[in-house]
Nucleic acid binder design. Sequence first.
DNA 1: ATCCGTGCAAAATCTTTGCATCTCG
DNA 2: CGAGATGCAAAGATTTTGCACGGAT
Lengths: 151, 151
Amino acid sequence: MRENDLERYIDKIKQMHAKITPQRIEILKIFLSNQEDHLTTEEIISRLSDSKTGQATVYRTLELFCQAGILKKVNFKNEDFARYDLLDLDSKHFHHHFICTQCEKVIEINEDLLEPIEEQIQKEHHLVITNHELIFRGICQDCQNKSDINE
Amino acid sequence: MRENDLERYIDKIKQMHAKITPQRIEILKIFLSNQEDHLTTEEIISRLSDSKTGQATVYRTLELFCQAGILKKVNFKNEDFARYDLLDLDSKHFHHHFICTQCEKVIEINEDLLEPIEEQIQKEHHLVITNHELIFRGICQDCQNKSDINE
DNA sequence: ATCCGTGCAAAATCTTTGCATCTCG
DNA sequence: CGAGATGCAAAGATTTTGCACGGAT
């Protein structure tokens, strides 16, 4: 299944009329095996086995992958560097995220739930909505438990 | 009413135990008279009448205002510089935004509509949700009309 | 064989910091 | 008066770019 996914992501590179290079494959595999994380450029560089790969290549590859619809650049925590999230091949919309304001943990939320709201807003504001980004902030379960103990 | 608002935002600075300086007042007024925009640091600097005000002061003031709950740093368009949005004094949550993928126009959406969804997600994922950020992407009315004409 | 991609280093851009001076409370 | 704010310039950090070389199709 994962191998199959890899092929499908590679097809997305081909659709951009871009070449399939070892560097691109390796970066793609890094994302496929770290689907829970939201890796930074630096983290990707440190995970590259071939230390000869230049950082410029990484930056250029991430940009390509964003254009190809493979990755989405995110910045949940107002950091001054980018993170990237692997897009799902089968879902029409970007998934939601919850960020804990205490521990900064990021939790992915895969239910969509937004369609009725989008219909209402489209009608009222005369818009055509094609995608969305929804971030919730609050306290995760672990941090709720921690503060219970302290009381 | 606007003067009254100014006082209320000034109170937020005081709540931070920070001093009320001419530079801070002027930057605050710039946001109060440009509520529709999402100004960049550079745009704020160019609007300052007192050209002696240093850019470091502007950066430090914007940071202070974010901590005070006066501004929110936003980056809808994946630009490599920050923009700031004035927070409403009376609403509990951050308002939503629609960004046109063709003309990059930003439209503010003040209906909340998210409360039932938040309740559902809180229960299912055992979270406490305190705020949210929701961005819609699509085609604005103007751009819809433009493409109708071209057909 | 031809483009496109890569690697290296330098450049560019936005933002932060150090320090002396000034000013609000 | 004293802690905090400002202005200037320099430093920091991430990302982009130029160019010669190498590799994919």
